[in-house]
């Protein structure tokens, strides 16, 4: 594996992350460092611990051991809400809209709490997030009325409305048609061009490869390879773990 250029200070860093649920070790000494403005993809078979790692980075789960640092500060013990306010946003694998609210209210609440905005600043922030994600036409519809693509967009809009510095995307491309996926890739590419730091878990490799700078492969709770996407995908261990040795 080629040596990465040393980062001055990673934007988001997990070091020696262990996470156990009872006797079951889901994460084993995982290290992940993401530089400011970088886009990192995470692949790995189901059960590799990818979503659990996101939970630890976003503060939804406390690690059993290890530290999480963000922009130089140790955030290991802080909860999800505080981490969001400090600039870490997350989308969920299965969209989790607030079903009793409208699309706009979903984004507005994120702007008010995650970004700490009020009044018309919050309203503009929410509307802009909807505009970016092509949801403006659905602004006043109940979130419960949205289909899968729009729910994924709302998940992203809500995360963007918190004005994040780093966004964790959990299989946001799953379950979409090729055309829908194309729109999503374009959007995420724009976010990267705007300087947003991105960590993206995805099974759809070709989507991931259009955006990311670096690829991390996880298997059975550990990082088994990381580096340039081509090098990682050529790694024999990755092929064995992830692609079942075929290809």
């Amino acid at each position: 594996m080629s040596e990465e250029p040393a980062m001055v200070q990673p934007m988001l860093e997990g070091r020696g992350i262990d996470k156990s649920f009872g006797a079951f070790k889901v994460l084993k000494a995982v290290d992940l460092a993401v530089a400011s403005g970088e886009a990192v993809g995470i692949v790995g078979p189901n059960g590799a611990g990818k979503t659990t790692l996101f939970g630890v980075l976003a503060g939804a789960l406390l690690p059993t051991a290890g530290t999480v640092r963000f922009a130089g500060a140790d955030l290991t013990g802080t909860g999800a809400a505080a981490r969001c306010r400090s600039g870490i946003a997350r989308t969920h694998q299965v969209p989790r809209p607030f079903l009793g609210m409208s699309v706009f209210e979903n984004a507005l609440t994120a702007a008010q709490f995650g970004a700490g905005l009020s009044g018309s600043a919050a309203e503009d922030c929410a509307a802009e997030a909807l505009e970016r994600t092509a949801l403006l036409n659905h602004a006043n519809r109940p979130a419960a009325a949205l289909g899968l693509l729009d729910r994924k967009r709302l998940e992203l809009a809500r995360a963007l409305a918190t004005r994040p510095r780093v966004i964790l995307l959990d299989e946001i491309g799953g379950g979409l048609t090729e055309a829908e996926l194309g729109l999503l890739i374009t959007l995420i590419g724009q976010l990267k061009a705007d300087g947003l730091t991105i960590v993206w878990i995805e099974h759809i490799l070709h989507a991931l490869l259009k955006v990311i700078d670096r690829l991390v492969c996880m298997s059975a709770g550990a990082v088994i390879a990381e580096g340039g996407p081509d090098a990682v995908m050529a790694d024999p261990e990755v092929r064995r773990a992830y692609l079942g040795g075929s290809l």
Partner: peptide, 17 residues
């Protein structure tokens, strides 16, 4: 708004701050 978000999905509410 926050209360309704919590009612609908507590974990998602925390994740937006």
């Amino acid at each position: 708004a926050a209360a309704q978000a919590i009612r609908d999905d507590e974990e998602a509410a925390a994740s937006i701050g």
